[in-house]
């Protein structure tokens, strides 16, 4: 879930979790309506909040164990899971230290550990890489991807960092002023945009554009030496080289123009 600051990302998450009352409308989480079945929803969800959330005078293992028990795990399995998830997030050696002594990065990891200790079916992450240095950020993203790939868990990531979303998510929902302005499957979006090609020639390309239009490409000129085109389906890229060779026009550069998530985001914001 993407959006600028104040778009309503966190508000939507908190409403889904039942923290805010619903003014109107409804929503379902894993088949359960959030108005009537708040407890069922919260039993299936693991939530990692954006803000600092911990109990300073507890050790990490007690804290995660308690959160596991509050989610319904019996005391024994909760302790076992607490150790497992703390090792998993890389806090195995520090698990008997009090949370008040943890660094920002470690607190983020503990928040992730408490969110997954009970094996939820939906993991909601609100700005999980906030305050992390580059290596900690990479570790966090690797963990989230591993969780996504190695379990039955769905991941809902809420962020304004496009790179995080691009690395973790399959689908993207863009919010603006509390409304959905764009919904896209990133893989499909990428495959569509692979049919965009940009060409730079060493000379005027008027003839080339004409010839390419004749074989089905839709061309637009960007300056006298740059050409942007949308290729038809099943178009063999080598045709471009053949046409250019016929016209004795050297190509200086040819590249697929791929809309980045940033382009998608900016387009959605301008819409």
């Amino acid at each position: 879930m993407l959006g600028p600051n104040g778009a309503g990302k966190s508000t939507l998450i908190l409403t889904l979790l039942g923290f805010y009352p619903i003014a109107r409308g409804t929503a379902r989480v894993l088949g359960h309506g959030i108005r009537r079945h708040t407890k069922q929803v919260s039993a299936l969800v693991g939530y990692m909040p954006e803000n600092d959330s911990f109990i300073a005078d507890m050790t990490a293992v007690s804290f995660v164990r308690m959160m596991g028990e509050l989610s319904g795990l019996p005391a024994g399995p909760a302790l076992e899971r607490a150790h497992e998830v703390l090792f998993y997030v890389g806090l195995g050696e520090a698990r008997y230290r009090k949370l008040g002594t943890y660094s920002v990065g470690m607190k983020q990891m503990v928040k992730l550990a408490q969110a997954i200790v009970h094996g939820p079916r939906l993991l909601i992450l609100d700005e999980p890489t906030n305050g992390l240095d580059p290596s900690a950020r990479r570790r966090m993203i690797r963990l989230i991807r591993d969780i996504r790939d190695s379990s039955q868990m769905h991941v809902l990531l809420c962020s304004h960092l496009l790179r995080d979303v691009e690395e973790i998510c399959e689908d993207v929902l863009i919010l603006k002023q509390g409304r959905i302005v764009h919904y896209a499957n990133l893989a499909r979006e990428r495959s569509v945009n692979q049919r965009f090609v940009e060409i730079e020639t060493s000379d005027d390309h008027a003839g080339l554009a004409e010839a390419l239009t004749e074989i089905g490409c839709r061309c637009t000129a960007h300056g006298s030496r740059r050409l942007r085109m949308l290729l038809p389906d099943d178009f063999d890229l080598r045709e471009i080289y053949r046409v250019a060779a016929k016209q004795d026009l050297p190509l200086r550069r040819l590249n697929y123009r791929r809309d980045t998530l940033e382009d998608i985001f900016l387009a959605a914001m301008e819409a």
Partner: peptide, 12 residues
């Protein structure tokens, strides 16, 4: 410490 969101996001 903002721990309420952790308690109340569970079936609690």
């Amino acid at each position: 410490n903002g721990a309420m969101s952790l308690y109340l996001s569970r079936p609690f």
